[in-house]
Amino acid sequence: MSDSSIRILIVDQNVTRAAVLEDGLREAGHTNVVVVRDMQNLLKRIVDAEPDVIFIDLENPNRDVLEQMFQVSRTVQRPIAMFVDKSDAGMTEAAVNAGVSTYVVDGLKKERIHSILELTISRFKAFNQLRTELDKTKQQLEERKLVDRAKGILMKERGMNEEQAYALLRKAAMNENLKLAQVAQSVITASKLLK
């Protein structure tokens, strides 16, 4: 179910994540999507955009700025309230777990935005998972570089071949109950000190 008349505002300092979410929403037929990245005068920009739904990431300290809107909403035309109510505890939890918070204009029927919320939560989850995997890959790459450098040092200093150097590192790691990368780092540090 898509509802292109619903105005959606995304507040996210992470440009890529905001784009991923925006694309997803557009694909689902929601054409009224505005993304705010610049946090200057946030309140005014939100009031100007007149959104029905606001998404903001939980890492954003500007969440508290948004919350003020519920207090000053008497002075703006369209009161904004938290989407969640008692019946939606599960949805709130899913959103917080995914790292996103949702605000919806008071009076908007919940059914109308249910799919939007679900889509947002799943996109946030997917993005965060991707980021975790990327971080892991990066770390593995870093670790491999360390091991390669340590191997190089051993090969040069002790006249070993690559296989022997690797075996020595592994043995040391197992004996010391350390990670291979940690032993490699020690070898690199030690060799610098001995220079």
Partner: peptide
């Protein structure tokens, strides 16, 4: 935490 709203929400959902 980075915001008071997060503190409240994470208490509410039991984080």
């Amino acid at each position: 935490e980075t915001s008071w709203a997060n503190i409240r929400d994470r208490i509410v959902v039991g984080h």
